[in-house]
């Protein structure tokens, strides 16, 4: 009763609880929060009380740079919850942050996007953790569906549209028609796998260890998925394994392209499998219009060209691919309220 009353003073939220970033879209306001899914936890002495030291952007800066009494963790792994309590705390913090100026404790309706490959247990965990964070009602929607709606694909038409959402931990490929998912597949490869591949490559070829943050910086600066005309370079520092001291060296975009071959190949394979498995009529629709890329991974330079060359289909990147899923979730909430559609998945 009181939850419902409080709910009248809270906005409906659509949350893209991603491995790398959490985005919150509030109805009528747009994207209101975009922060890394990182929580820093302070534990004063062994076995003592744990407190949250920082969440989001601030905690991300601590990743890999913490003293002994603080651990910065990413509570989501491969698109699902790895640490239940910490995820709950993080969600609680984010929901409060969105409702910062409110007197009454927020109790919004929340829609959360889950990877289509997640299991019942994983979905249950996400639902429970959102409920624990103060949500009045929790709905789940499959990520590729939200991505397709957010990208502006004609999901309501009897027409196949293929969407490839490359997130931090998972990549989802799905064919959507008539508000439903015809085919979906999820591979546990995403932006994080690219970072890991870069770390492994540097270690193998330069005998030097670099951190995750550095690998991500390299990826953003010179990472590409398809051989381009120009070769970009970046100078990085890492600890040389043989000498044991930090060393500076230069990486170029061709090396990074080589490093990324394996994860990229897996993503392309997932897309090809999806095309094979799609019913022929829908496959023809996809072949005509093309594949839409969403998610942060779509920002990797020339990824669309790689998939275009591999599949011989037109590939387009959605506008603002990072926020597609959260925006799509928000639109899904509106569509459901307006037309009583049932877009949600059950547990």
């Amino acid at each position: 009763m009181f939850r419902r009353l409080r709910g009248m003073f809270s906005n409906d939220l659509s949350i893209d609880l991603g491995t790398a970033n959490t985005l919150i879209y509030a109805r009528g306001q747009g994207i209101v929060l975009n922060e890394p899914s990182v929580v820093a936890i302070r534990e004063e002495r062994k076995g003592g009380a744990k407190t949250v030291a920082a969440v989001g952007e601030e905690a991300k800066r601590m990743l890999g740079r913490t003293p002994q009494n603080i651990v910065a963790i990413r509570p989501m792994k491969d698109g699902v919850i790895a640490d239940f309590t910490v995820t709950e705390k993080m969600l609680q913090y984010f929901i409060h942050k969105v409702h910062e100026s409110r007197l009454i404790r927020p109790s919004p309706r929340v829609l959360i996007c889950v990877p289509c490959g997640s299991t019942q247990v994983e979905r249950r965990a996400i639902k429970e953790s959102a409920a624990g964070a103060g949500a009045r009602e929790v709905y789940l929607i499959e990520e590729p569906m939200a991505a397709a709606i957010g990208a502006g694909l004609p999901v309501e038409e009897p027409r196949g549209s293929m969407v490839l959402d490359i997130g931090g931990g998972t990549s989802e490929v799905a064919v959507v028609s008539l508000h439903g998912i015809v085919y979906s597949n999820s591979v546990r490869i995403g932006g994080d796998s690219f970072d890991d591949a870069i770390i492994a490559y540097v270690r193998r070829n330069y005998g030097t260890v670099i951190g995750e943050a550095t690998a991500e910086r390299v990826k953003h600066a010179i990472g590409s998925a398809f051989p381009g005309n120009e070769v970009l370079e970046i100078e990085v520092r890492g600890r040389n394994l043989a000498e044991g001291v930090p060393r500076s060296f230069t990486l170029n975009s061709n090396e990074i392209l080589e490093a990324l071959q394996e994860p990229l190949h897996n993503i392309v394979a997932a897309v090809k499998t999806a095309l094979e498995q799609t019913p022929p009529e829908l496959g023809a629709d996809v072949a005509e219009a093309g594949i839409v890329l969403t998610g942060g991974g779509a920002l990797l330079r020339d990824l669309d060209r790689l998939i275009e060359e591999e599949t011989s289909l037109p590939v387009v990147i959605a506008e603002d691919p990072l926020t597609c899923v959260a925006r799509g979730g928000g639109k899904a909430l509106e569509m459901i309220d307006a037309r009583g559609l049932d877009l949600f998945t059950t547990e």
Partner: peptide, 8 residues
Amino acid sequence: PAPVFVTG
């Protein structure tokens, strides 16, 4: 097709 494709 849909505007998202045309812009692409």
